[in-house]
Amino acid sequence: MVIAKEAPVKETIVTRDNVIAPVQKNIVYETRGLDLWYGEHHGLKNINLDIYENEVTAIIGPSGCGKSTYLKTLNRMVELVPIVRTSGEILYRERNILSKDYAVEELRTHVGMVFQKPNPFPKSIYDNIAYGPRIHGIKNKKILDEIVEKSLRGAAIWDEVKDRLNQNAYGLSGGQQQRICIARCLAIEPDVILMDEPTSALDPISTLKVEELVQELKEKYSIVIVTHNMQQAARISNRTAFFLNGEVIEYDETDNIFQNPSDQRTEDYISGRFG
């Protein structure tokens, strides 16, 4: 195909940008010049990214592009790997979470996480949900009961499990387990929810249920989701960041990314023409 030539067009152009006034949203996370090394490997290179309140921000990119690493930096889970070094700053609600005096335990009560594989504890459904509140010192049975019900309702799984709260969470299906994990995360009343490929181990119907849930949750929470599934990013996110080799290639509203990406590498990736 022939490469498009630029045409001199009169500025009588109607574009979406002119039609829809951009809404000013609060910023939750402000990443400024973040670099990260795994030993000698430069995993993240000068990341600058703002994450907005009550939005779903999707992070896409090929395997090993650093998208999961970035997500895990947002709640400092990345520190579980001892050889990791970081520089630059990530401001969460205007405080630098990478500074030494920010306790990870505090950060993680504001920022919940849902993992790739459903990982409920081998305990009852009730104890799974009550785990977070309990470690933060809530002992009152009545309050715990309320939190459990509210969280399970929030994760749209209350009706499915309300009669068997004392059964082991491992008796549930994979999709239900993942929603239990989301409920468990809601129980710490987080501000932000990080999701690391939350549907990659689920069947298509369970996947759609979780996606539906994510759409509901963004009314109350800000969500950052890493996904391999580009259609999923297109369906559920407001903004999409495309990572490649540890860099952010493009970060824009999802509608723009999937209709008219500005970088050729983004286009090649989302239309499945990598390499």
Partner: peptide
């Protein structure tokens, strides 16, 4: 094929 971007356009 769920085309996106240029393919879809």
């Amino acid at each position: 094929q769920q085309p996106v971007a240029t393919d879809l356009r």
